[in-house]
Structures are given as structure tokens and as C-alpha cells.
């Protein structure tokens, strides 16, 4: 069980592709910073290929004026995710 964080948007598709390759069904992807733009409907097909769960950091969504149907977490939720997973892998 790994928590993957990803901080870059659709302008860097290779980053998300690498992250997807490294994930399993028990992992979680947390979109942070510019990574939250992947939650737009235009990228639904891409996110559908994530083997595990996908969540997004609330403050980064709010800051950028993006609404999403994904599960969101606040900073406390981010900390909880790191605890609920064995380790964290950062993609940036």
C-alpha cells in the first residue's frame, strides 16, 4: 500500500504515465498542486486507468477554482493518508 503524490498537470503527461505504471490496486494517488488539473472531466479516461484510488488536495482545488467529483482531502486528511499507507512516493 503506497501513497503516490503527483504535483504536475496534463502538460506533463509522462509524469502521470510513470506513476500509473508504478501503482497497484491497493495504492492511492493524491493529486496535489498543479496535479489537481487531472481531475477535470477532459481527463476522465486517463484517470480511469489508475489501478487504485484517486483523491485530490482540497486547498489546491479551491485555490485554482476547480471543482471535482473525486474524493478530496484537507491537509489533515493528507497526513492521515500517509499514515494509512506503508510509504509515500512523490512524483514531481
Amino acid at each position: 500500500m503506497i501513497l503516490h503524490t503527483l504535483n504536475q498537470g496534463p502538460g506533463n503527461p509522462a509524469l502521470l504515465e510513470n506513476c500509473l505504471t508504478a501503482m497497484t490496486a491497493t495504492d492511492t494517488l493524491l493529486l496535489i498542486e498543479d496535479g489537481i488539473y487531472w481531475s477535470l472531466p477532459a481527463y476522465a479516461d486517463t484517470l480511469a486507468r489508475v489501478p487504485g484510488r484517486v483523491q485530490a488536495l482540497e486547498s489546491d482545488l479551491t485555490a485554482r477554482g476547480i471543482k471535482t467529483a473525486l474524493t478530496t482531502v484537507d491537509d489533515t486528511g493528507f497526513v492521515e493518508l500517509t499514515i494509512n499507507h506503508d510509504k509515500v512516493v512523490s512524483w514531481f
Partner: peptide, 23 residues
Amino acid sequence: QAPPVQSQGAETALRFTRAVLAA
């Protein structure tokens, strides 16, 4: 690994650190 100002990473790190301590 992120510098202040030019990228958001350091700000995110600070907020995360605060949340860790607050919990």
C-alpha cells in the same frame, strides 16, 4: 527539494508539516 516563491512545493511542505504537528 522545492525553493520558495518559484514553485509551490515548499509551501505545501510547510502546510503538511503543520498538519502533522497539529495531529
